[in-house]
């Protein structure tokens, strides 16, 4: 570290800090406050303190069911991403450099494509008028279209596709920190390929799997466009519910309460699991 005036870092980071204060902290605080405001169909937003919105969320089972569905979807998406992302990362790491870079393009490239276009692809594949269903029906294999649109399964498959690259990345990063010789070392000591994987490789990439899971879970629980398109108007998740309250019902305070709850729940889960991961693995990894 160089020794220059103590003010330098504050002068450098100051403008950005001010921007974040004005454009992140204040708006978020205003949203939390908004959730305690009153609202009426005809009177609009009334700046009077009330717990009405929060009480409504607790009292009405509808909200509980939406949040439950949101987290159920997020957990299943996370499990699916672990199931396919971890082996894929391992396979990727063992490919020859040429094949690896081509495969990386194919796996990571979709991350840069708008999530709307990717979700459209699934709708085109599995929609009731979609290619797969049309084809299967033409072949006489099924009588009615497979249910995909407006189902939780559809949302889970789409989100797994959208988020799996993050899992591959996280695990792959962990694999790259591995000493390539440890595998040979385990082999030389008489371990089979499977034992090597389970006893030597897996324990070392668990932190990568866990941090990838946190990322996938957080993004799945706050996903908006895919559940909105595949889930439609009936199958609501927290994000689409907040959207409806804001832009359709125009009940901003209730929408703000939904958003606040989603934010608090997610931050608690992310911070909590990061703590857990750090405490558990701090000794082994730096």
């Amino acid at each position: 570290m160089s020794e220059r005036p103590k003010a330098a870092p504050y002068l450098l980071a100051g403008p950005t800090a001010l921007v974040f204060l004005g454009l992140v902290l204040i708006p978020l605080a205003m949203t939390v406050l908004l959730s305690f405001y009153d609202w009426g169909q005809y009177k609009g937003i009334v700046p009077e303190w009330t717990l009405k919105n929060w009480r409504e969320m607790v009292a009405d089972d509808y909200f509980a069911s939406v949040f439950l569905r949101t987290f159920r979807i997020a957990i299943l998406v996370t499990l699916a991403c672990v199931a396919i992302g971890v082996p894929e990362a391992y396979i990727l790491n063992r490919l020859s450099p040429g094949w690896r870079s081509v495969s990386l393009l194919a796996i990571l490239g979709p991350l840069l494509v708008s999530v709307v276009a990717r979700t459209l692809g699934w709708a085109l594949l599995f929609g009731s008028t979609g290619v797969v269903n049309q084809g299967l029906m033409k072949l006489g294999l099924i009588a009615a279209p497979l249910p995909f649109m407006f189902t939780e399964t559809g949302v889970i498959v789409t989100l797994t596709h959208v988020l799996a690259p993050f899992m591959v990345l996280a695990v792959w990063a962990a694999l790259q920190r591995l000493d390539p010789q440890v595998e040979n070392a385990a082999g030389s000591l008489g371990a089979s390929a499977f034992t090597t994987w389970r006893r030597v490789i897996l324990p070392q990439i668990v932190p990568g799997v866990l941090s990838g899971s946190v990322i996938v879970f957080a993004l799945a629980a706050s996903a908006f466009a895919s559940p909105a398109i595949i889930g439609g108007r009936r199958l609501k998740v927290a994000a689409t519910l907040a959207y409806d309250e804001f832009l359709n019902t125009l009940n901003w305070p209730l929408g703000a309460a939904v958003a606040t709850l989603l934010l608090v729940a997610l931050v608690a889960i992310i911070v909590g699991s990061n703590r857990l991961i750090e405490r558990r693995y701090a000794q082994v990894f730096e």
Binding site: V24, P27, A238, A239, Y243, G255, V267
Partner: peptide
């Protein structure tokens, strides 16, 4: 703080900005 927009759901950010 600077990395926080990654953690805050974009739907929440959208609502906060709209407000």
């Amino acid at each position: 703080l600077f990395l926080s927009p990654l953690m805050v759901p974009h739907v929440v950010l959208g609502i906060a900005f709209l407000r």
